[in-house]
Amino acid sequence: MNSVRKQRLILVLAVLVGLGIAVGLMFYALRQNINLFYTPQQVVAGEAPLGAQMRVGGLVVDGSVKRNEETLDVAFDITDGKGSFTVHYQGILPDLFREGQGIVANGTLISTSRFEAEEVLAKHDETYMPPEVQDALEKAGHPGAKKGGEYNE
């Protein structure tokens, strides 16, 4: 390789590495803003701001969903295994909402144990299978059978 090309190559790679580091640092610094939602662990630890508009995400705890028959009020607990709190919501839940499923809720945190949602989104996982396979898995008591959304961290 002649020296001009070598210089250009080094320059381009240096720019790329420099920009990469800059973007990486920015990502790290803004991590909390880039995360779409707070996890139950963060909420319980008091890392999430009270009274501010924000999103929380977690798995709906089995057997925690309470519906009020007269109004459309729903309350359910969400968890990530390291903490949990109750979400209150008024409205129609998405089709994929079910116990054990991951959800993201948009609303306000009243206290570290109560969240009032204006919008509930279902966070589905990356598993796809036919219903028959799911039935078979469930019958066999496969641990992965009733898994809802899986969470990173």
Binding site: V104, H124, D125, T127, Y128, M129, G149, E150, N152
Partner: peptide
């Protein structure tokens, strides 16, 4: 960033179904 965003930060989008290493979480018929 596009590729690893679902692993590094919390997103609504789920993780990758097809994995280069390890088992893909999709039934063979699909």
């Amino acid at each position: 960033i596009v590729k690893y965003s679902v692993e590094w930060v919390q997103t609504l989008h789920q993780g990758s179904t097809l994995k280069l290493f390890g088992e893909s979480t999709i039934n063979p018929a699909m």
